[in-house]
Amino acid sequence: MMLKKNFLWALHLFIILLSGCSKKSVVSSSNSEYKEDLSSVRPRFDYVEPTVTERAAPVSTPKTSTAPKGNVDKPLYVNKRLETVLDTLAKHNKSIRYANGFRIQIYVGNVRQEADDAKSYVYQAFPDLNPYVSYTQPTYRVKVGDFMYRTDAEQYLELIRERYSSAVILADRVDIKRSLLVNPTAESN
């Protein structure tokens, strides 16, 4: 039985090796050339020569302006429409009050007096920054500033960390008008 299995395995192995070593015929692409007539399926276009119609010469009459009257009105019409569109866009942009920006969180804790102290410190040391105190039971959070760019917030963060070492920069919705008032190069007193 064992001899029969070994013989079958050897036979299978021999057939696989023999088929792997056999010469295969490969069609050479250099000898064969592709030829097919595709003219029946190609689209056909008939060229039509454009005709030029000559206009009659206008009767010479004295003109007071050099530009035709019909062409003058159209640019003004386009300009008026453009002005109204630009005005509506400007009104829309002015109505946007908040944008994505950054604030520095200087205090997180359960003691209201410490939150008020942090707020008063910001008023005294950084008058151009606005402190925001929020309360979510039982935690007070004091965030400072309206920064449009993280780099501006990082400049103030170094100064604030002298007093509040746990201060961090957080992404937040900021007031655009107040963010324009922040001077990132200002130093503390």
Score class of each variant (00 low, 15 high):
Met1Lys: 07
Asn6Ala: 15
Leu8Ala: 13
Leu8Trp: 03
Leu11Gly: 03
His12Lys: 07
His12Met: 06
Phe14Ile: 10
Phe14His: 09
Ile15Tyr: 09
Ile15Arg: 07
Ile15Gly: 04
Ile16Leu: 05
Leu17Phe: 11
Leu18Val: 11
Leu18Cys: 08
Cys21Phe: 10
Cys21Gln: 02
Ser22Pro: 04
Lys24Asp: 09
Ser30Leu: 12
Ser32Leu: 13
Ser32Pro: 01
Tyr34Leu: 13
Tyr34Met: 09
Lys35Trp: 13
Asp37Glu: 09
Leu38Gln: 03
Ser39Asn: 14
Ser40Arg: 05
Val41Trp: 01
Pro43Asn: 12
Arg44Thr: 13
Phe45Trp: 14
Asp46Asn: 04
Val48Thr: 08
Val48Gln: 07
Thr51Asn: 14
Val52Pro: 08
Val52Ser: 11
Arg55Cys: 05
Ala56Cys: 03
Ala56Arg: 08
Pro58Leu: 10
Pro58Asn: 04
Val59Gln: 07
Val59Gly: 05
Ser60Ala: 08
Thr61Pro: 02
Thr61Ala: 10
Pro62Val: 06
Thr66Trp: 02
Ala67Glu: 13
Ala67Phe: 14
Ala67Tyr: 14
Ala67Arg: 14
Ala67Thr: 15
Lys69Asn: 13
Lys69Asp: 15
Gly70Ser: 15
Asn71Cys: 08
Asn71Asp: 15
Val72Pro: 12
Lys74Met: 15
Leu76Met: 12
Asn79Gln: 11
Arg81Cys: 14
Arg81Glu: 15
Val85His: 08
Ala90Gln: 12
Lys91Arg: 12
His92Phe: 08
Asn93Pro: 03
Ser95Gly: 10
Tyr98Leu: 11
Ala99His: 07
Gly101Arg: 04
Gly101Gln: 05
Phe102Lys: 05
Phe102Cys: 04
Arg103Trp: 00
Gln105Thr: 00
Val108Pro: 02
Gly109Tyr: 00
Asn110His: 00
Asn110Trp: 00
Asn110Glu: 01
Val111Phe: 09
Arg112Ser: 12
Arg112Leu: 10
Arg112Pro: 04
Gln113Ser: 14
Glu114Lys: 12
Ala115Cys: 09
Ala115Glu: 00
Asp116Ser: 02
Asp116Trp: 00
Asp117Glu: 10
Ser120Ala: 07
Ser120Leu: 07
Gln124Ser: 06
Gln124Thr: 07
Leu129His: 01
Leu129Tyr: 00
Asn130Tyr: 06
Asn130Pro: 00
Tyr132Gly: 00
Tyr132Ile: 14
Ser134Glu: 10
Tyr135Pro: 07
Thr136Ile: 11
Thr136Trp: 02
Gln137Pro: 03
Thr139Met: 09
Gly145Met: 02
Gly145Tyr: 01
Met148Asn: 05
Tyr149Val: 03
Thr151Phe: 01
Ala153Glu: 03
Glu154Thr: 12
Glu154Gln: 14
Gln155Trp: 02
Tyr156Asp: 00
Glu158Ile: 13
Arg161Val: 01
Glu162Val: 09
Glu162Gln: 10
Arg163Gln: 06
Arg163Met: 02
Arg163Pro: 01
Ser165Val: 01
Ser166Gln: 09
Ala167Gly: 07
Ile169Asp: 04
Ile169Tyr: 01
Ile169Thr: 05
Ile169His: 05
Asp172Arg: 03
Asp172Phe: 05
Arg173Phe: 06
Val174Ala: 00
Ile176Asn: 00
Ile176Phe: 02
Arg178His: 08
Arg178Cys: 00
Leu180Gln: 15
Leu180Val: 12
Leu181Gln: 15
Leu181Ile: 10
Asn183Trp: 03
Asn183Ile: 14
Pro184Gln: 05
Ala186Leu: 14
Ala186His: 03
Glu187Pro: 06
Ser188Ala: 15
Ser188Ile: 15
Asn189Ala: 14
